[in-house]
Structure formats: C-alpha cells, structure tokens
Design a protein around this nucleic acid. Structure first.
Length: 558
RNA sequence: UGGCGCGUGGCCUAACGGUAUGGCACCUGACUCUGGAUCAGGGGGUUCCAGGUUCGAAUCCUGGCGCGCCAGCCA
C-alpha cells in the first residue's frame, strides 16, 4: 500500500473521521467489491483509491472482495485480471482476500432465519408475474398470492430449491417488506433465485444463489466492514441494506455511503460497452492502449502514480459530473515528466547529409537523460554524417513563427552541432527526400563560442546506428466528448484516428532494449513505452501522450 | 408521474451562517540546448431561479426549474 500521505478530505473521509472521533468505530475497515464480469477501468480506480486510501489514512484495512453471486456472468479470467490490476495500482489487501461465495452457507442460514421469523417467503410467481405485481413508480404493487403461505411450507420449498428440485425461475425467495413502498426496492425484493449454473469457485455445490442485496451487506457485516462505500445508483438500496442488517443476527453493523461514479469525456466507462468494443473487435482487447481499463492504461504507459494523483485531484462528491479527460492526461504528464528518461526517436524520417562532415567519422555525443532529474545522469549517442530528422521539422517555405529548419536556415541538433540547410533534394514527384547541410565544428555539444542561438533545436538519430521500429500513435477512443449521447450510435462516434501505426520510425539504439511498459520520452514528441508485442528486431512502441505542443496549437488555430 | 439524490467560472472542487477556494483548461510575459518543463502575471462566477429567516445566506426554510438514479430472478 502506498504511503498514507494526507489526502485532501471529502465528505466520506469527514464521516469516517467523525465516527472515529465519536468512537462509533475503532478504525476504518473498507472493501473494494468488484464483480468478476469484466475488467477494471479508471472509474474503478477512483473507488479503489478511495477505499484503500481511507483504510491507509485511518490505520484500518481494505478488503478485496469478489462479489461473485451470479455465476452466469462471472469468469476466472476476470478474477485474475482484477487482482493484477489492483496490485499494479499500488494497493495491497494483505490476507484480506474474500469472496461473497465464501459466505454462501451463512447467507443460506440467514435466509432461513428470515423465513422462520416471517420476514421472507418462497414465491411461486414467474418473473413476469412478479414484475406485474410490483406496480409502477406511481402505483403501489400487489401482494403475491404466496406471500402469506405457511412458514413451514416456505422452509420446505426453500430447502428443495437448494437441493435443485426446481428449474431456473420456478420460484424465488422474497423478503416480506412492503408492496406499497414508494421505494420499489422495498416491494418484497428477491433474495434468492434458482440458477443451475457452475460457479467459478463453488462449482456445482449450489443451485440457488443470493442476489446482490442479500449478499452484499451481510458480507460487509461478516468481515466487520465499517464503511461500505459504493456508487450513487445503490442509494435507493440503502433502506434494504439496513433492513436486512437489522433483521438478521449479523456480527457487526456496517453503514453504506454513496459517492458519484467517475465519468470521463471522450470515452465510455461501462463494462457493458467496453465488453462490446472487445467482442466486436473495435479494439485489440481489454488491454488495448485506447481502452480506459486499468490494463489498457498500463499498456498505454500511464503510470499508476499518475492515476492515483488523478483520483485525488478530482475529489469525491455526490454530484454526477463529467471530468475532462485532459485532467487525467495532465496528472499523467506530471509524473512522466519527472520520471521518464529522454531518448531520441524519429517517427517520420527525412534524410539529412552533412556535406562537410568527414565520411565514416562517428562521434559519441554526451546527452543528458532527464533535465528534470540530474541524478538520471547522461548517456552517449552516436553522431555521423548521415542522419534522420523529423520530416515536419523542415519546411521549404516556412510560414511566420515556424522556427525549425528551412533552406539557408541554421538550427541546433540537440546535444550535437549547429547545422545549416544548403540544398533540398526532391524526387520526381517533387517530394523532399534529402537535405544537404553543413555543420559548424565549433558548436560541438550544442553551444557556439560566438553566442549564436538558433531559434530551434531538433532531435535526430544517426542513420548508421538507428534501429527501426513500429510506433503506435494513440488518441482519444471517441471523437466527441460524450460518445453515444443524444441517441447517436456509439460506433459512429469512434475516432477513426484513435490508433495510427507508424512503421518506419528510427530510434536511438539504446531503445532496442527498453523494457516493456517502462516510460521514456522521445524528445519533443511525447511519452512512449515498449508494447508487449515488441520483439528484438521488431520493436513496437506505444505513444502514451504527446508533449504539450504550442506550435501544433498555433497551427490548429490558423 | 411516486421515492431518493444532486445543481458553485468551460471542466473538477473548497466553503460547515461572516461576504466565493484550489486544480485543470485558457491568455500574457520571463526563462530555456525539448515550441517540453519551470516561473510570474491575467481574464472569466447575478454560487439554477424566486421568495423567506437573519445584522449578514453558496450555506437555513418554502416553492419552482433542471439533471441523475430506482419498476432484473444484474451488480
């Protein structure tokens, strides 16, 4: 667990602090309760940071509990991915790994307890009939004809449900609360349903499974959870949460608090929609670098620290809001700028020949690794007569405010020499294919003895030394900030340029051994990291984010 | 329509009856061997509206308006 630095406070932390001060609880025991039916995304990260963060700050603990009450949707693959992602985010549940399925026997006993007390009954109505009886938002529901059947009969039927005597949907166990409640969740909610399905953990031991409402609060109580923090859509369930905890002999009394889930522009945060993108092949998988999943962000190169910083910066409230994705990107750049070693990489190479540089000569130029971090030291990069520079660092007819290379103009090659463009060579189609330049030997290292200061500094790689690579450039997954809004088809909002694969990049040789996922900055371009697809001799890099680019901004305005 | 919740500059957020906080974004300028980073400064708010209580209201009350959630044997 990361150091429990004092986080900014929020209404939930205020409640916890007050509870601790009033000795209502000894400490904060929270839990992160994912359902293993998909991959975790940045919205879950907000919840993870909140739950583990609070536990850390108050010297309590946070459990990882899988809410695995619906075997028809849940899979082991998701369980594994969730554990990996929470750990990668920087959190540790220690020995406190739990599953709602661990409590199935206890939950069953408690269900029997409810029946014995006349607080629950077996209902023979079909799903359709139950819906019909439930009433509507404005009309009260009607009692099921089975609502007052003898307790012994319900007991017998419930036992036989467990034994697997009835098919799916034949009967359910319902709480007996109030069919006229204005809160629909209190109109005799279903507690158990028959599901002849194999569970990832309990196998075929059970033919009935508890619903979320029956399982969640009771699991909290079993684990001694003090503050059960969930998202706003469960607000209407809180009266039921409380009802169950009050009608059952549970060992502790947890309280539920709700906060607003995260919404982000230019993406979607719904497991259903993310699953659709995966299954329909619009992305490379759950961990596609464009996905807002934790594993996607990781593959993209977003550091865990940046995600955590983002979570604290956006705060925790009950207001349903949409955060600009730029705020996430800012938190990520902030970390990357501090930690990413700088390297040279040319995405769209243009050959540059230095006519007065001796053929065959190679100089090892000393280049600082990170101007933000002197302790990162420096490295050596080979320089020679033939180089690659970025094609858009040259313009034959430079517009005003374009400071880079142009015919007759002198610029600095970073940590190397000043060069002047003498001649532009084009192919038959008129495309620039080579620049002939001269260099000033007196400017070795990048400074001139006479104080000349070029307006631009270019990155470069030696043509004789550079290694080729594929580079995948990523942008927002969706073009509009609110994909699928106003009844638009989600797919129509996909950004056709969300991934651009560049195949002819040339990188400085040290990048050939860059570990997968380790962030580097390609100077002047952005932050990158090697993709898991990368192989020796077939390097693949992902662009995590571009650097802020005021020139690009100027161009966009024009 | 019934219940519950929420409305503070473009976005997020603070304020706990004392005269609108901070971050992101935006705009200047300085500095710079990354048009990066950094630093300095700046613009932008009838705190959803209308009443009321109070010496004083973003905060409390009433009534509107807007938005979100709830009618799965999903979570």
């Amino acid at each position: 667990m990361p150091p429990a630095a004092p986080e900014r406070s929020d209404f939930i932390r205020d409640i916890v602090a007050a509870d601790v001060a009033a000795r209502r609880v000894e400490t904060a025991i929270t839990r992160f309760p994912p359902e293993p039916n998909g991959y975790l995304h940045i919205g879950h990260a907000k919840s993870i940071c909140l739950n583990f963060g609070i536990a850390g700050e108050f010297g309590g603990r946070c459990h990882l509990r899988f809410d695995d009450t619906n075997p028809v949707k849940e899979e082991q693959e998701y369980i594994d991915a969730i554990e990996r992602d929470v750990r990668w985010l920087g959190f540790d549940w220690g020995a406190h790994l739990y599953h709602a399925s661990d409590y199935f026997e206890q939950l069953y006993d408690w269900a029997v307890h409810l029946v014995r007390n006349g607080d629950a009954y077996v209902d023979d109505l079909s799903a359709d009939e139950i819906r019909e009886h439930r009433g509507t938002l404005t009309e009260p529901g009607r009692d099921s004809p089975w609502r007052d059947r003898p307790i012994v009969e319900s007991l017998d039927l419930f036992a036989r449900m467990r034994a697997g005597e009835f098919p799916n949907g034949a009967r359910v166990l319902r709480a007996k609360i109030d069919m006229a409640s204005p809160n629909i969740n209190l109109r005799d909610p279903v507690l158990y349903r028959i599901l002849h399905a194999t569970h990832p953990r309990t196998g075929d031991a059970w033919r009935i499974y508890p619903t979320y409402d029956m399982a969640h609060g009771q699991s909290d109580a079993i684990e001694g959870v003090t503050h059960s923090i969930c998202t706003l859509e469960f607000e209407a369930h809180r009266p039921l949460y409380d009802w169950l905890v009050e009608h059952l002999p549970v060992p502790s009394r947890p309280r539920q608090y709700e906060f607003a889930r995260l919404n982000l522009t230019h993406t979607v945060l719904s497991k259903r929609l993310l699953l659709r993108l995966v299954t329909e092949g619009h992305v490379r998988g759950w961990d596609d670098p464009r996905m807002p999943t934790i594993s996607g962000l990781r593959r993209r190169g977003f550091p865990a620290e940046g995600i955590r910083d983002f979570a604290t910066e956006i705060g925790v409230t009950k207001a349903d809001t949409v955060v600009e994705i730029g705020q996430l990107e800012h938190a990520v750049r902030d970390v990357l700028n501090r930690v990413a070693p700088r390297r040279f990489g040319v995405l769209d190479p243009l050959k540059l020949v230095i006519e007065n540089y001796p053929a065959g000569q190679v100089e090892e130029m000393d280049v600082v690794n990170n101007p933000e971090d002197p302790s990162a030291g420096s490295r050596t990069v080979a320089f020679g007569r033939e180089l690659w520079i970025e094609r858009d660092d040259f313009l034959e007819e430079p517009p005003p405010k374009f400071f880079r290379l142009a015919p007759g103009r002198e610029v600095r090659l970073r940590a190397a020499y000043f060069i002047t463009c003498r001649e532009v060579i084009k192919d038959a189609a008129g495309r620039v294919i080579e620049l002939r330049c001269t260099y000033d030997p007196a400017t070795r290292g990048g400074d001139s003895p006479d104080g000349r200061r070029p307006k631009a500094t270019l990155h470069w790689v030696s043509a004789a030394h550079a290694v080729p690579a594929e580079v995948r450039l990523y942008e927002h997954l969706f073009t509009p900030p609110d994909p699928g809004a106003d009844g638009r088809d989600l797919l129509a909002d996909l950004n056709p340029d969300s991934e651009t694969v560049v195949t002819g990049a040339r990188l400085e040789p040290s990048l050939a051994s860059a570990p997968v996922g380790e962030p580097v900055q390609f100077e002047r371009l952005g932050y990158f990291c090697a993709d898991p697809d990368s192989r020796p001799g077939a390097l693949v890099f992902n662009r995590t984010l571009t650097l802020k680019d005021t020139w690009a901004k100027l161009q966009a305005k024009a």
